[in-house]
């Protein structure tokens, strides 16, 4: 019987431990959970304050140097626009859009601003096969057009229908979406252009965790005014931008059927079987082959003298 000395045991454990430490943390996103960077910034949008002036749209257009819109920003007929039965959405020429909703619960119309919600665990990011998206510690979800192949999987994956694509471009079509004014403002600690421009203080910029407290506080103080939900607190694992409202969110066009955890969690089951198939299948099927062809004269792979008879 071979004895394992204490020294050998320790050396072995060290080596094993080191090996585990050295192995690359592949698919870090597919394991554990992530509820946002601790100091990630966010924006609280209070729908009760919005009057639909579209100043934020104009500010975004200017900040992001987008082309002039077909109708000027003080033209409110856009609220009646319907495209294939749908209200306006973000496009490659407008990263944020305000829509008007006539609701049952409120006599006055409700206005809802949409833009990228900058999810904690963005589905666009996790679905991208060239890693074009980055969630920055500041909380923005930014996009690198230099590596984008144009598969548009992120547009499929985004639960909020946000990313748009510059289909018109022949040589360099890319994804266009709100980036939280990352390069021009957020990086330097400044709020995005839309937040700063708002005359009604609909949007509050700050650390996501602080903003959540403020949102809860507002709902607690005015239980008659607000519905008891913060849209984006839990939806798809939490979003950087979230909403409070005086009408049930589904009446203002929000999708209430979204899962309360990151969408990538749905995909993890499949991702987990990948290494298993990769390692088990070769042994399994080579084993099947050996079992089912053992002793038979016309098996192909395990002999070299019969090559001439293939394809018979």
């Amino acid at each position: 019987m071979s004895k394992i000395s204490r020294r050998k045991f320790l050396a072995g454990s060290m080596a094993g431990g080191a090996a585990v430490m050295m192995s690359p943390a592949k698919k870090a996103l597919a394991s554990g959970s992530f509820d946002g960077f601790p100091d990630g910034m966010g924006v609280l949008v209070d729908l009760t304050r919005c009057v639909g002036c579209r100043t934020c749209e104009a500010a975004c257009n200017k900040e992001q140097k987008l082309p002039d819109p077909a109708l000027p920003f003080d033209d409110y007929s856009v609220f009646d626009e319907l495209h294939l039965g749908q209200k306006r959405r973000t496009t490659d020429k407008a990263y944020t859009v305000v829509n008007r909703y006539e609701t049952e619960s409120s006599t006055a119309p409700v206005y809802r601003k949409i833009q990228c919600n900058h999810c904690n665990e963005p589905t666009c990011l996790t679905s991208c096969f060239v890693n074009a998206y980055t969630k920055t510690p500041e909380g923005a979800v930014i996009y690198n057009p230099k590596v984008c192949v144009g598969c548009r999987n992120c547009m499929i994956a985004c639960p909020f229908h946000i990313p748009a694509y510059s289909y018109d471009s022949v040589l360099n079509p890319v994804i266009k979406k709100c980036v939280f004014c990352y390069d021009t403002r957020l990086k330097n600690g400044k709020p995005p252009a839309c937040v700063e421009s708002c005359p009604q203080q609909v949007m509050t910029f700050g650390k996501r965790k602080e903003l959540l407290k403020i949102a809860h506080e507002r709902i607690r103080k005015n239980p008659d005014k607000y519905v008891d939900q913060i849209y984006g607190e839990k939806e798809v694992g939490g979003t950087g931008w979230f909403y409070i409202s005086n009408v049930p969110f589904e009446e203002a066009g929000f999708d209430q059927d979204l899962p309360k955890e990151p969408i990538i969690n749905n995909v993890k089951g499949f991702l987990a079987i990948v290494p298993m198939v990769l390692t088990i299948w070769p042994a399994l099927f080579t084993g099947f082959h050996l079992l089912s062809t053992k002793g038979k004269s016309h098996s192909h792979g395990d002999e070299n003298g019969h090559d001439g008879q293939e394809g018979q």
Binding site: A28, L29, S127, C128, F129, V130, N131, A132, V147, F270
Partner: peptide
């Protein structure tokens, strides 16, 4: 050139 190994695609 650029890898996104956590993506199904």
């Amino acid at each position: 050139y650029s890898f996104g190994p956590a993506a199904v695609l």
